[in-house]
Design a protein around this nucleic acid. Structure first.
Ligand SMILES: NC(=O)c1ccc[n+]([C@@H]2O[C@H](COP(=O)([O-])OP(=O)(O)OC[C@H]3O[C@@H](n4cnc5c(N)ncnc54)[C@H](O)[C@@H]3O)[C@@H](O)[C@H]2O)c1
Ligand SMILES: NC(=O)c1ccc[n+]([C@@H]2O[C@H](COP(=O)([O-])OP(=O)(O)OC[C@H]3O[C@@H](n4cnc5c(N)ncnc54)[C@H](O)[C@@H]3O)[C@@H](O)[C@H]2O)c1
Lengths: 220, 220
DNA sequence: TTGTGAATGTGAATTCATTCACAAATTCTA
DNA sequence: TAGAATTTGTGAATGAATTCACATTCACAA
């Protein structure tokens, strides 16, 4: 599965596009399509066929010339690359507005991201049952993360405390963090931190509307 | 305010970074800093000073040589560029898990994104009060969007119906849409569509963990 | 079995984004 | 007031990502 050039550095945008391909392949699978060309894949994602082929070529040759890519097989391969053919143990810290929306989101579960633990510091929430998961006391964070082999932590606490939480999470040995607090968090070199910044998308739209008639930007 | 090169095409990444600068400037303002250098700004966002200066230079010269940028003034200028010094009328479609989390999120309000309308098709929700806003029937979408001068619509309905909703939203003349449904929506050329794809970030972390020891990627 | 058409895989070319490097401008110090 | 120290703003250089373009491969039909 891993091709000759697997040691090459892969760009972030390529990985993000792999996610997109994966989603489209799931749809094609449901539509009972056996094969798909880079042209078709590109059309569905508003990319170019060359882009699709180049992205995939970093990881191997999955297609057949003259025919295209086998839908099921390619999906499996991309799943392998992205680590979606396995389960990940996830913990949520902070179960307020956004935290509980995410805990209740079944799509994550179906993708293999299993939320195993929920932490909060609110006494009214600790011990209560959230979608079948008992809310743990934030005080036991480190121990519980380790005992449950948690691999990914989602941060959904107020910005003011996010850095403290992250420091504890990192101390517990976690290497992957998804942060929803609108703040720049510091983590060591070897920890992967991604930020989900919803204001940014709204601000982009705001900018777009401001410039709609000034030629700085076009919608497409 | 608009500089000579304002007609130049600005890249998406520059706009996204402007959002970051804006956020850091708000923090600096709270810290009562009068001025800030590109070096300091870069450090806080993990960018290079040259990047910061280049980004800003697309829109004008806001700094003073030897001194740096005036915090308050620069924040105001970026606010002007991004359209954050004004209010935007926003509507939410779908008030389930994620929809209600967003409606209750005060940060949007404070940034000038005022959620004025909420739509749903669930009879139990229609007419009820959500954080001070009466939930409207989706049937009245077009009329209400127009009557209330809505400029931005947020889509938080199941993927299966998202395209239908978007078609109606577009017919009503809306030019900016933020979509949370994990599906590729079709919109006309002149409509700005942004997708908030949380699975993508988790999948990126998954990929990162898979490759941590293979040299394909480093955390920083 | 051969010829035609379709589509991949990939170096090379191109376009786009970032970083370099430095003249110019301004502050600060004495 | 002069000279040292900063820091901007920006062309030029570099680096990264995307697209081009085509030889190669394979399916399929006759
Ligand atoms: N609500 C949204 O739609 C939304 C959108 C984008 C980003 N965010 C960000 O997500 C974060 C959470 O937002 P929210 O709206 O859910 O807020 P919230 O106040 O509803 O929830 C925060 C939760 O964190 C818990 N908490 C506070 N301090 C804690 C600590 N030290 N340890 C453990 N738990 C602690 C609180 O008890 C609460 O349950 C914030 O940083 C917010 O800016 C929220
Ligand atoms: N919950 C999350 O954390 C989360 C995260 C990322 C993305 N999403 C996406 O956001 C969307 C909503 O997710 P959710 O978890 O809030 O689902 P949900 O089922 O809780 O909410 C969906 C809401 O949309 C309403 N609705 C359904 N059909 C409608 C129609 N035709 N017109 C108007 N309203 C209609 C429902 O009544 C409900 O209130 C989904 O596409 C989901 O994939 C959710």
């Amino acid at each position: 599965m891993i091709s000759e050039n697997s040691k090459r550095k892969i760009s972030e945008s390529t990985i993000r596009r792999l996610s997109l391909y994966y989603r489209v392949l799931s749809v094609l699978e449901k539509e009972n399509k056996e094969t798909v060309s880079s042209k078709e894949l590109a059309k569905r994602e508003k990319l170019t066929p060359a882009q699709v082929r180049k992205d995939l070529s970093f990881f191997g040759s999955f297609g057949t010339r003259g025919l295209g890519y086998p839908v099921m097989e390619l999906k499996k391969q991309i799943g392998e690359i992205l680590g979606l053919n396995r389960a990940w143990n996830v913990a949520m810290v902070g179960v307020g507005n956004i935290g509980s929306a995410l805990v209740g989101y079944k799509e994550f579960q179906r993708q293999g991201f299993h939320i195993k633990l929920i932490f909060d510091n609110d006494q009214r929430k600790i011990g209560s049952n959230h979608k079948g998961i008992m809310v743990s006391d934030i005080k036991n964070l480190a121990k519980e993360l380790r005992d449950n082999n948690i691999e990914i932590v989602i941060i959904a606490v107020p910005s003011t405390v996010a850095q403290y939480i992250v420091d504890d999470v990192v101390s517990a040995g976690i290497k992957a963090i998804l942060n929803f607090a609108p703040v720049n968090l510091r983590v060591p070199e070897d920890v992967f931190l991604r930020n989900e910044n919803m204001s940014m998308e709204l601000e982009y739209l705001s900018f777009a509307l401001m410039n709609l008639f000034e030629g700085r930007l076009t919608a497409k």
